[in-house]
């Protein structure tokens, strides 16, 4: 499967082979406001779908970012260390958080495509 998928917790996943790149959605970054710090997981960490992957801190608050898929962290976006605001500026691109080696591709089926996610967000207002 290809294309971007979203979770109900506002994380996104882009899949390339068995590697999923994970970040938070433009809706999520807008809700957070200015991101000032991202606490990224250690490389090699085994993560479970729906459990904490990272913590993102805005000026005001700390928020957990949940793993949209289970697997092992193989890479993190170290550039966020010096430029956490990238999450606000380019949530779907340079603001990615981590790359995860997917444990179970079937988990991706529960995620929304872009159109479904857009409808989901509109329903939140």
């Amino acid at each position: 499967m290809s294309g971007i998928r979203f979770s109900k917790d506002h994380e996104w996943v882009k899949v390339d082979g068995d590697i999923a790149t994970v970040g938070i959605s433009p809706y999520a970054q807008d809700q957070l406001g200015d991101v000032v710090f991202v606490d990224l997981p250690a490389i090699g960490k085994k993560i479970e779908k729906g459990k904490e992957l990272a913590v993102v801190e805005s000026v005001k608050a700390a928020s957990e970012v949940y793993a949209p898929v289970s697997g092992e962290v193989v890479e993190v976006n170290a550039a966020l260390g010096d430029a956490p605001g990238t999450v606000n500026e380019d949530a779907l691109g340079k603001g990615w958080f981590a790359k995860v080696k997917i444990a179970n591709k079937a988990e991706l089926d529960g995620l929304m495509d872009e159109a479904a996610y857009k409808t989901f967000c509109e329903g939140l207002h």
């Binding site: 917790d9 994380e11 938070i24 809700q31 913590v55 005001k60 700390a62 928020s63 970012v65 949940y66």
Partner: peptide, 8 residues
């Protein structure tokens, strides 16, 4: 994602 520090 979830906000961990809501305003009480």
């Amino acid at each position: 994602m979830s906000s961990a520090t809501p305003t009480s």
